[in-house]
Design a protein around this nucleic acid. Sequence first.
DNA 1: GCCGCGGTTAGACAAAGTCCAATCTTTGAC
DNA 2: GTCAAAGATTGGACTTTGTCTAACCGCGGC
Lengths: 138, 138
Amino acid sequence: MKAKSYSRQELIALLRRQGIAPTHQRLEIAHVLFSRCEHLAADQILALVNERHAETSKATVYNTLNLFRDCGLIREVIVDPKRVFYDPNTQPHHHLYNIDTGEITDIPAADLAISGLPDLPPGMVTEGIDIVVRVRTL
Amino acid sequence: MKAKSYSRQELIALLRRQGIAPTHQRLEIAHVLFSRCEHLAADQILALVNERHAETSKATVYNTLNLFRDCGLIREVIVDPKRVFYDPNTQPHHHLYNIDTGEITDIPAADLAISGLPDLPPGMVTEGIDIVVRVRTL
DNA sequence: GCCGCGGTTAGACAAAGTCCAATCTTTGAC
DNA sequence: GTCAAAGATTGGACTTTGTCTAACCGCGGC
Ligand SMILES: [Mn+2]
Ligand SMILES: [Mn+2]
Ligand SMILES: [Zn+2]
Ligand SMILES: [Zn+2]
């Protein structure tokens, strides 16, 4: 996943396409998420957004992350029981999780195959499959 | 995974084998975990253990779950950002997670294969691979 | 009976996240 | 451009999950 540098106009278009009003705070948060391609937790995003000049509250960060998630702009990564990480990469992919450092790395789903999954109980539909490879530094 | 009904003596032996002193509280918690084969959160275990007669504290439940986990008697399941579930099934297996009901079901690892995983960065060793199939009720 | 040690406990604490009512911004109609 | 309605933001209170601590309990060994 490339760390494309989105212009302000591109970010505005990105939000509008989802029917999201491009407020200053949402643009700042989108910028933090999409300019670097990392897996960030809410408190890290809050800190990054207010780095230069405090102007976005904790409530707005959480509101916005939930909004972006509901619109499919970002996804949640559940690997650490302590906090949720937000992933700007919404392509199907999986994760390598270093349990010592907490580092999360993408694993492309392209060349990966799972076989032998049992059939789903009737009336259920798959929402997604998440694979987490937990690694330790030797 | 069968819901074997362990006798008090079997539970005592199970704990002693791991060098764990079989106190009354630990036996109660072990009983709750191993007699039913579900994925329970700490607060559910606390409630079940104190169902008849309050005698085990929150601190002891958490102490004991962490102790059992460190000894490999149980494992944690990380699927819900809100709480950790404890799994008495320590065989390699995966999970089906119903995002609507919160229900967690085991998927045996036996007849399941993953191909195409990239090589690990040098100096890293795999601790485990967790697959979560997220399903929705149609 | 007393000691020592491991286990248990209530309650204080911490961190992640939600909620609320007051306030501020955005937006579109004019 | 003005303005009002709709929508967004905010500080701070609140909730939930989990940890920590210091006092206390209980049991085996002497
Ligand atoms: Mn700014
Ligand atoms: Mn009892
Ligand atoms: Zn990712
Ligand atoms: Zn399981």
